[in-house]
Design a protein around this nucleic acid. Structure first.
Lengths: 338, 338
DNA sequence: TAGATTTGTGTAATCGATTACATGAAATCT
DNA sequence: AGATTTCATGTAATCGATTACACAAATCTA
């Protein structure tokens, strides 16, 4: 009645069995052309739609994949998800979204929910403060469900990942700032318990060392990714006896806050001070003083993650660790010499 | 073996039937405390997880809802989706994402896919160029699956919607520009075959009429929501014999493009020219010249849509048309008089 | 034309959980 | 003690689609 036609309804209408209907609909060779045609026509007439749940239950494949991110409404994550969706849609997969809000309990809960929903794969950018307890991740691996980390990964066996080369990005950026004549480079760090932030820190450190510039602990400030923290950090830096003349911020938002505050202090950018961000948030390009930053190719990252998943599903590769090249976007905020 | 415990496995282990196990797990009163305890312990020990697919197939409820948007990676849509997710997560629903890329065929396909997946509800912001043929929407209604339009709606019976008062937003903005001393107000319009753009246009028109300002057709330009179209539109406007001294753009991106181009022409904002956007994209606030715009409360819109869905599911209301208040954010780009 | 092969359908099990109904045992009542 | 109720559990159908196996009819082979 309310638009629910099953293969049994079609079978009854044609006085045949559901098995035959199923075969006709699935182009099974063991069926006569005449009945196939009849079934197809009747199915169409009765507006039959396959019930994916029944199919999923029987086949064990839901044709859904789950994506777990800290939050969906930032350009980076939304774009990665878009990439995943675009890569998987042609193959008939639907994407289920989960947010952790950077909460580890929520992350565990999300993984369990997705497993109960019988997803065929899980894409995940882990939350801050990674749990010691990897039990919930082990369970995914044990169930042989493809798990693909993107951006914020955790080094594990049997798990694929798609990231950019954060170390390289950071090294090159620091090198660039040095070449612009900045030797006193402050660094806004994310939570270094996450691999990507540790890698970025190492890149910064190594570039300084390679240029015989000593590390100044006062210049290294731990921040969260928002405007206010960037402003506050600048206040701290300017209060130093020997303040820096450049900032490399691992967050575009903090870089923006830093620029605002520097301007308020009458400091000229880039003449007196260079600033470099990370992430290529849309606004960095739009500012009157455009902000130099690093593009992480989120759309491409999502598409690549989708491909890694498909390769695994099709038994082409069991595990891939894809590392994309970061793209330095050198804009006004760090260009003294061009 | 690979981590798949069913109620049958538990039943076998305890030498009882699956029915009893099911009852124990569901707190059915018809069961003894002792067996319940035993089952619960064993289930825990065997790491049992309920198979949602089986449950969904039997109950007809998948505990999934679908969201159809033109694209996910813009602040507005990503935020609405976040709101929906946050509103529905506590109730145990998962959100499935679909993108139309503004393509109507893709929209039809997405609706069908979601129906086949037996979603319990569909949230949708329709694509441009709405189809004459509403058949695919009728089918949703006929199946009695809650359908909630947000932002870009279509007026229909038995369909709920959550929008802002676009007419009012537009009226107030135009009024504001007039109060700032601008009488020659250009208007960047979206596709007026969509209700929201038609409503916005009417608000603009009415405000002019109420202030005895004649409509100048040359000032009305149809644009797509991006920077380049804003720039191009300004070129056209400045080439007019009698160019405007204000722009009300129904897109923040186009407003940004307009500002860029106006500046290039040496025109001072807001002194010589006022600009007003729509949507409160993050960058509008961050600019050195902050852009006046209208906040659509996307997070709230998503949460409200989730609530509308829940009300329908729980038979509290059959159909709601929620209209949120727009928030004018009057910033530098339109502030001559403060 | 008898026997072998092909072809098209039907039968019934399966995926995992829930639940109306049946049943047997224990508990309660008269 | 016998009748009746209560309680806990088992039996089996159901949700919708797929598929191994069985079987009958049609076609082919020698």
């Amino acid at each position: 009645m309310s638009g629910k036609t099953t293969i049994y309804d079609i079978a009854k209408a044609l006085n045949i069995t559901a098995a035959t209907v199923s075969r006709a609909l699935n182009n099974n060779p063991k069926i006569s052309q005449s009945t196939r045609k009849l079934v197809l026509e009747t199915a169409n007439k009765m507006n039959y739609k396959q019930n994916k749940l029944a199919l999923a239950l029987r086949s064990g494949k839901s044709n859904n994949v789950g994506v777990i991110v800290p939050r969906i409404n930032t350009n980076f994550f939304a774009s990665v998800i878009r990439g995943i969706e675009e890569g998987l849609h042609p193959e008939g997969y639907q994407v289920i979204i989960c947010q952790t809000h950077e909460d580890e309990d929520r992350e565990v809960e999300n993984v369990n929910t997705l497993l109960n929903a019988q997803v065929d794969g899980i894409f995940m950018s882990i939350s801050n403060l990674p749990k010691e307890n990897n039990h919930y991740i082990e369970r995914v691996i044990q169930k042989n469900i493809p798990l693909i980390f993107f951006d914020r990964k955790k080094e594990m066996k049997n798990v694929s990942s798609v990231t950019i080369d954060d170390y390289l990005a950071s090294y090159q950026t620091t090198q660039h700032l040095i070449e612009q004549g900045c030797k006193k480079i402050a660094y806004f760090s994310g939570d270094r318990s996450l691999e990507i932030y540790e890698d970025r820190y190492r890149g910064y450190e190594q570039a300084l060392l390679d240029n015989n510039i000593p590390i100044n602990e006062d210049y290294i400030i731990s921040i969260k990714s928002n405007v206010v923290e960037g402003r506050d950090a600048v206040e701290k830096l300017l209060a130093l006896e020997n303040p820096p003349n450049a900032i490399f911020s691992t967050s575009d938002f903090a870089a923006l806050g830093a620029i605002q505050k520097l301007k308020e202090h009458g400091i000229k950018i880039p003449e007196d001070f260079c600033v470099f961000g990370f992430g290529n948030e849309p606004f960095t390009k739009f500012m009157e003083l455009s902000i130099s930053t690093i593009d992480q190719s989120p759309l491409e990252m999502g598409k690549m993650a989708a491909q890694v998943f498909l390769d695994k599903i099709n038994n082409k590769k069991s595990e891939s660790k894809v590392i994309l090249s970061p793209k330095l976007l050198i804009r006004q905020s760090s260009t003294r010499i061009s």
